[in-house]
Design a binder for these strands. Structure first.
Lengths: 367, 367
DNA sequence: CTGACTTACTAAATCGATTTACTACGACTT
DNA sequence: AAGTCGTAGTAAATCGATTTAGTAAGTCAG
């Protein structure tokens, strides 16, 4: 009777019922009272703590059964507060749209969920204020770690962190990077074998973290193959539109320069698609007149007409690797020697946007 | 001196330093001790609680200044525990890849961040086990609300919920839906005006929540325009690949049936792109031989060659609306009358994949 | 000079777990 | 008979806020 009164009072004191029917889930204390045991005992048993070794199996069974029966779920927030682990990561991305980020997120998600982790996302759109603010927000939310995708770090952070396609050397941050030398070799080697030596290049936007490194690899590979990189055949993407527009614009610029080329290596698939459109509008067919190689191998590369020859980045795998690395560092705090970077291998995917060089419109006009 | 000892002991007692340098952020208690005030006072002042009206401005200023100076940040988890608000939503999606989900997520993100909320995502890939499990996991994490995107609900949930493109009638769930009647009118009207009356249809996968509703709207619109819907010109997408493969396969089936058509209305842009490829491989050009209309207007629709004529869903807006609706329901618990559904308007985007009907290869062979 | 108000705060309870440091009690050893 | 174990637990502190229910001191009216 006394207890009933107490219960009534509790309901009355908190008339917040979120929804018509949810009578707020059972707490550990309630479960303990129901069993006539202390919360301590339940906690030890339910968490299979070593200290529970002295509890007889019979009692354990009773506890498990009651927990199941009353549908007991430990209060996640309370547990987080006590253990100082949120089982949540922060993921920082330029934006969600587009194949690249989505693929990486997919990989991250896969690994995290199977480890009982979730992640929160923030899109910084390369805005430098947001680049500073979001990591702070993440830390305020007590994330256990941070993954940044194609994102420049502004400050050091105090939790384990991994950067996908990051190239900065920051203490405590592991970079997941593609073997860009290999990628450049594959792409240029492919074009070279097809007989191309007048090759145009579309570099990435300045804010893209791969831009610089990839360009260096391309220069190296070109040198090895004795391919000349002509400044007049080199343009860079501008603007942060996630559409194929920047690639289109860059290619128009290339065409205006009137220096001729039989092949084009674009910074990514999306810009390659824009490039093909620009070429077509100038009466140039891909691959007959100009071969085009993309980068990333996002879904759209395969959809495209013609199917895009491209360098595949194992984006999903990179996401998985990132997640795995952060999780490891969270577990073994500071034990492991912490690799500065982990590298993954690119793959050449040959589709229909590249073909053997023929004496075509563009070239005949210069030679 | 005594205090120094106490501090030393505390550090010694907790030798868990996560990272080489992070001396764990200041807590409210520490800040209070530093100021010679009680945590209560600080809490009242910092949260601008009405009860703080009796605190003189001078004291308030001291508190704010100290908070800034010591870089005090309230412990998010502790606050969540006390207030029973996690300021986090759960978002349930089929998968992250592809334009559709990404766009909606973008809209959700935008609204949430500006309200101080974050979200956690889970991809169910239409797996019915996951469809049951993830909402449970969300609730276990004490999300304040749930948004489902193109997802069927299995159970009722005990927090405010919104379904983007959901059509089930579930108590407490608000559906954000496109005006499909209008969409069908726009698409068929457009084709009709171009002279098409032999129109093929690719229906959605059975698990897609829009499939049924949209099909009914199409039938209605066809009837109004006196367009015949021939079973032999109707196929449905199969399999859950997020690529254009299902659209390609469906179109091949359509072509095999040998019944002729001059236009095709696909369930979404991705399948429309697959359809165009299948048509081309059969020697049929788009739009000269067959006009194709897609649905959604994802990025890839504009990239495609030819640019895809399509029905745009305001996906980003739908995401924003979903977020806004959940947030409202969280604030005004149960006050508002809770609309069963909120509808948004489609838009016809005419690009290059549709053209006036001409006596083409397909039609001449039947007539 | 008492009671009511205002001002400026604070002690303690609470949210719901985890974890440390005990307590009984019986059995067994020496 | 005293001391040592092992068994079966429990009380209380803790994580870091928020919030309720005060208190103590001063002011003012009547």
């Amino acid at each position: 009777m006394c207890e009933t009164a107490a219960v009534a009072k509790r309901n009355e004191g908190a008339p917040r019922k979120k929804h018509s029917d949810s009578p707020r889930p059972v707490s550990l204390r309630q479960l303990a009272e129901h069993l006539g045991l202390s919360p301590t005992t339940l906690s030890l048993v339910l968490n299979d703590s070593p200290a529970a070794s002295s509890i007889p199996q019979g009692t354990k069974d009773r506890i498990f059964e009651a927990a199941r029966g009353l549908n007991y779920r430990p209060h996640f927030v309370a547990r987080s507060l006590r253990t100082q682990r949120s089982h949540t990561l922060g993921v920082l991305v330029p934006e969600i749209s587009g194949g690249y980020t989505a693929e990486v997120l997919g990989g991250i998600e896969e690994r995290l969920l199977q480890a009982g982790y979730f992640y929160i996302v923030a899109c910084h759109r390369h805005d430098s204020d947001l680049l500073e603010e979001y990591p702070r927000l993440f830390l305020e939310r007590r994330v256990d770690g941070i993954i940044a995708v194609d994102t420049r770090w502004v400050d050091r952070v105090s939790v384990p962190a991994v950067s996908v396609s990051g190239h900065q050397d920051i203490e405590g941050v592991t970079n997941i990077i593609l073997n860009h030398d290999k990628a450049a070799q594959l792409a240029l080697g492919h074009l070279f074998e097809l007989g191309h030596c007048r090759i145009a290049f579309i570099k990435g936007q300045v804010f893209s973290s791969d831009t610089q490194v990839r360009w260096e690899s391309i220069q190296q590979a070109a040198q090895n193959l004795q391919i000349e990189i002509r400044p007049s055949l080199t343009v860079e993407l501008e603007g942060d539109s996630p559409s194929s527009e920047p690639g289109y614009v860059a290619t128009r610029k290339l065409l205006e320069s009137r220096d001729r080329f039989t092949a084009l290596f674009a910074f990514n698939d999306i810009s390659a698609i824009g490039a093909i459109r620009a070429l077509r509008e100038s009466g140039l067919n891909t691959p007959d007149d100009v071969s085009v190689v993309g980068f990333d191998d996002v879904d759209a590369a395969a959809f495209n007409n013609p199917g895009l020859t491209t360098i595949r980045q194992p984006l999903r795998q990179m996401g998985q690797l990132a997640a795995e690395t952060v999780l490891n560092r969270i577990d073994s705090r500071q034990q492991a020697p912490l690799p500065k970077s982990i590298s993954v291998e690119p793959e050449l995917i040959v589709r229909r946007s590249t073909a053997r060089r023929r004496p075509g419109k563009l070239e005949s006009s210069t030679r």
